[in-house]
Computed example of a mutant assay.
Amino acid sequence: MSTLFTKIVRGEVPAYKVAENSQFLAFLDVNPNGKGHTLCIPKKEVDKIWDLEEEIYQELMRFSRSVALALEKTVPCKRVGMAVIGLEVPHTHVHLIPLNTMDEMNFSNKVKMTEEEFQELADKIHANVEL
């Protein structure tokens, strides 16, 4: 059975995409810890990050770095935090979260955004991504 993220990759479920290449996709988390909270995923469905082939893992980190640098240019923050938890969706994903305080890494903290705010932010981040 396909995960939610595989359905996003296939275009079956909409997403606010910020970066994409042949192997990876980055999109805004629709239940974000803060504005700009982005998920980076391999397009190939693999449950656990440690099950990725080493080369794909390295490429995912390189892709995530590019997205994080774009986030820093787009969303006012002291730094971009990274987390790999993997319990929510059984598809490898890297959380990139713009941070000003440690509390913003707490996954019980969420912000609400309108569809228009999501799309505007996705477009701004996309404009700053250099792959």
Rank of each mutant, 00 (worst) to 15 (best):
A26Q: 09
M105G: 05
E104P: 11
G36N: 07
S66A: 05
A26V: 02
V94M: 08
L87F: 14
H126W: 09
Q58T: 13
L71Y: 04
D29T: 01
D123L: 10
S2R: 05
I41G: 02
V94D: 02
L71N: 00
L28S: 06
G36A: 05
A70T: 04
H91Q: 06
N31V: 15
S22L: 13
E120N: 12
T74N: 04
V67D: 03
I49V: 15
E72P: 06
P98F: 03
G36H: 00
S66E: 12
K124T: 02
E72R: 11
A19N: 11
K110P: 07
N106C: 10
K44C: 07
V89A: 15
K48Y: 08
K17L: 01
L87K: 07
E88I: 07
G36E: 03
G86Q: 12
I8T: 09
A122I: 02
D47A: 15
C77E: 00
H93V: 01
E116G: 07
L96W: 03
S64E: 14
V46W: 05
Y16Q: 03
G11W: 04
K124S: 12
D47C: 15
K35F: 07
I41R: 01
M82A: 12
F63Y: 05
M105H: 04
R79Q: 04
Y57K: 10
P90F: 02
P32C: 05
A127M: 08
T3S: 15
S2P: 11
Y16D: 09
Y57N: 01
E88H: 15
L121V: 00
Y16R: 03
M82P: 06
F27E: 07
D29P: 09
V13S: 08
V80M: 03
I97L: 07
P42H: 06
V111L: 12
A15Y: 08
H95K: 10
E53F: 14
F63D: 02
E12M: 09
H91R: 10
G86F: 02
E104W: 04
H126K: 15
Q119R: 13
I85W: 09
N128A: 00
I49H: 00
K35I: 08
R65W: 12
F5T: 03
K124C: 09
L71V: 01
F5I: 01
D123N: 14
A122F: 03
Q58D: 15
V80R: 00
W50N: 10
S22Y: 04
F107E: 00
I41M: 07
S108W: 00
F107L: 11
F5H: 04
M105I: 11
V46K: 12
F107S: 06
E20G: 08
A83N: 13
I49W: 04
K48W: 07
E12K: 01
T74Y: 01
K43M: 12
Q23D: 14
T92A: 06
S108C: 00
K110M: 11
K35G: 14
L99N: 03
T6D: 02
I85T: 14
T101A: 09
M82N: 08
P32H: 12
T114P: 00
V30I: 15
V18Q: 06
Y16P: 03
Q119M: 13
L39V: 08
T114A: 11
F107H: 11
I85P: 12
G81V: 05
H91D: 09
A122W: 01
E55N: 14
I97N: 08
I125W: 00
H91S: 09
A68T: 01
D47Q: 15
V30F: 14
L39M: 13
E117I: 08
M105T: 09
P98C: 02
T3P: 00
I56H: 11
T114F: 10
